[in-house]
Design a protein around this nucleic acid. Structure first.
Lengths: 198, 198, 198, 198
DNA sequence: GATTAACCGAGACGGTACGTCGCGTCTTTTG
DNA sequence: CAAAAGACGCGACGTACCGTCTCGGTTAATC
């Protein structure tokens, strides 16, 4: 739930302060121990002010996280798909290893997941990243590095899937080795033509 | 947290009734609206009785879900890897499309994920399924269908990853088409030798 | 608390509008559900404007009610005390049976009574009415209808007391029958000399 | 609103403690500054416990006050109406001059008066006192001190009315002089036959 | 078969956080 | 200069669910 208030003047200050406080609290205490009062206090703002701008606790979290996620996705263009994909994979892996990344992960996947807005946000963020990374694949196809008909989205999903698996389920370390492995798998599948348009 | 009470006599009855009620509540109302009181009432038992056997709400859920997950994993042996992997993938996909599967998914991934027991359970269940499915791969390697040196675990992770991605993130339908796609990708990567032992 | 702003020009308009809105809100919603915001909106004025002119909510009410109470008290002169007193009593009873009278009653007695201004206003209004009605009694004494030495204030208090009792405590209907009864009692007591000067 | 919980055991203790704290807070801080939290703290009890037994703040006050008012009404029987009535009047006057009496008065008349339960309580308490005092009048009629047909309720209302007037409106001191005056007036009216049955 | 220990039902309680309401204050913009 | 507009601090409200406790009463295993 986006705050539908003016984004200038005093309002903007409050908004920013609360957002920052929200992420900080998430990082410090985790989703379980997250409380609106604590956020308000940390932001130097009264609880009611938070509730004036955000419907409830979950909305606040979603909004803060979504805002924070609107960050730069790299668009690597090294000249070879392999290097490009590796860069993408490493960037993705890295984005979840910072404290903030961990907190966001927890909030998005293990905390407030029961309400539709969260699911929607998750979907939205993922597709956004996907869309922004597609040029990497289309360029590779144009260069003849990948078979014509390769579906960029499918390739990138394959790449991301392997990383999310360890992140969310196995708990194995999410590092550059994993990223490289994911890139290698996606590339192999693409070369084999397993990622063609339906 | 396992109930550390005798598993026979009256105790066993209570335990079973509460487990059933827990899953039922999870399915009916979801994790968000899950309350111990409701479970107790549904089980025809008093709240204090529940707390006598389980430390807290999360422990109850973990225990009930874990118990329910001790189910059979198929060990398909059709003669070809492709058919075997497709069977595995479809079985996995199917296991999350039932109401009970959905509830468990919610409980395990989006609800009570903040405590270590849950993460541990998640890991454990996943690795258990992995281990039980490995023969499919080793047989294929033995038959010469897959390159020697193919890591069974890696192949199966690749297969599972694509399914979990749609399940947990994109929200796209998790059906046989997806299962088949996942199997195809994993197979292609294996043939290309991208899933060899480190 | 009187508004200490100029009583002419734009200010007078605002003042009048807010006063009217205050009474209207009191009548419509009662003291309990009275809110400054609602008054402001009804008066077509912003809340801050109200607070510029009145210290707080209670002051606003007191001021509005007091203004409204500056109304005419009858000075009946029929020729006989009995008829005169009956007229007075009926007028008093009637003044509290109108919707506006009810609202004022609620505001003055059951709502904002905890602050001194209200008590003072109550006292003031009562004594004002008393003072204006005294000629009725003095004329009767002069005519020899009542014993010399009859205290006008005491007689009128006796008369009023019986009406206020039903109004504020018993909740019995406050009608002409009650008014007549009150007049009869006061008259009887006066004839018996129970209302003489101390 | 009466608490409909068991009146024995631990429950009774809590109930009593909260009642006491309620009256004490009323006396100390007045109705305006009355808060449930403060009462709970004073009673050594948690806020939620108060809300478990009483619907809301007003119900708590009404209940506490009503309970406190179930006190002994004197039934004077000196042999003469005059003395009896004087005793009644003095007792009534006195009951509102103590700090607790003042607090109750404030709560019942100037604070929580907007809800029906309060009005009902007011009515009930008044009629109860009335009923208990009636023997004084009936005895006097039987003795021939008052005209046959004198309505006990009317006489007592006349007596009470004069006292409540000063108490609630004029603000004049409510002392023995006033009580005696009220008794004298009621007696005179009765002797004159102004208080006969309708 | 009586006794005794473990367990259960019932229900209140302390506690934390929630989300809401209305008051009175303050700042910024507009006529 | 005053009013409109609108956010804010503040304090209290009443609610929900958590996990704990105490008290009887019942069941079931033991002597």
């Amino acid at each position: 739930m986006k705050s539908d208030r003016p984004v200038v003047g005093r309002g903007a200050k409050v908004r920013a302060a609360v957002h920052a406080a929200t992420l900080a609290e998430l990082v410090d205490k985790g989703y379980a121990a997250f409380s609106v009062d604590a956020v308000a206090q940390r932001a130097g703002v009264h609880k009611t002010t938070v509730y004036r701008r955000w419907k409830d606790r979950e909305s606040l979290i979603v909004d803060a996280v979504a805002e924070h996620m609107a960050m730069d996705i790299p668009d690597p263009d090294t000249g070879t798909v392999e290097a490009d994909l590796r860069a993408l994979a490493r960037s993705l892996a890295h984005s979840f290893t910072t404290p903030a990344g961990q907190a966001i992960l927890a909030a998005m996947f293990t905390g407030a997941a029961h309400l539709p807005e969260i699911a929607e946000a998750r979907r939205h963020v993922f597709h956004d990243r996907l869309r922004r990374a597609e040029p990497v694949v289309t360029r590779a196809v144009a260069r003849g590095e990948l078979p014509a008909g390769t579906d960029p989205a499918e390739l990138l999903k394959t790449l991301a899937a392997r990383i999310y698996l360890d992140l969310l389920i196995t708990g194995d370390p999410v590092d550059e080795a994993l990223a490289d492995k994911a890139a290698r798998i996606a590339l192999a599948a693409a070369h084999a033509g397993a990622l063609g348009h339906a």
